[in-house]
Amino acid sequence: MDVVVNGKLLDQQGVLIDNVTYVPVRAVADALGASVKWDSKTRTVNINK
């Protein structure tokens, strides 16, 4: 499925599973000018702008 952020079509696709939409975090964050960091201890994705 296409993912559009601020009118820009992302190169990567989203996925629909059991009526839940999943999108690639890094691609969306990059499109928004945000940074992504992974905390392996807490298994948490942090997005900051």
Rank of each mutant, 00 (worst) to 15 (best):
M1F: 14
M1G: 12
M1W: 04
D2V: 06
D2K: 14
D2N: 14
V3N: 00
V3E: 00
V3W: 00
V4H: 02
V4D: 05
V5N: 00
V5W: 00
V5A: 01
N6Q: 12
N6G: 15
N6F: 03
G7S: 15
K8D: 11
L9A: 09
L9T: 11
L10S: 04
L10Q: 00
L10Y: 01
D11C: 01
Q12V: 12
Q12G: 12
Q12T: 15
Q13F: 08
Q13G: 12
Q13A: 14
Q13L: 13
Q13W: 07
V15P: 02
V15M: 14
L16V: 13
D18S: 15
D18Y: 06
N19R: 11
N19I: 04
V20W: 03
V20R: 14
T21N: 08
T21Q: 09
T21H: 05
T21G: 10
Y22E: 04
Y22C: 04
V23P: 04
V25S: 06
V25N: 02
A27E: 07
A27H: 09
A27Y: 05
A27G: 08
D30N: 09
D30Q: 14
A31K: 00
L32D: 13
G33P: 10
G33K: 10
A34D: 09
S35W: 04
S35R: 03
V36K: 05
V36T: 09
V36L: 08
K37I: 10
W38G: 11
W38A: 08
W38Q: 10
W38M: 08
D39N: 15
D39C: 09
S40I: 13
K41H: 10
T42C: 05
R43K: 15
R43E: 14
T44G: 00
N46P: 00
N46H: 13
I47D: 02
N48W: 10
N48L: 06
N48G: 14
K49D: 12
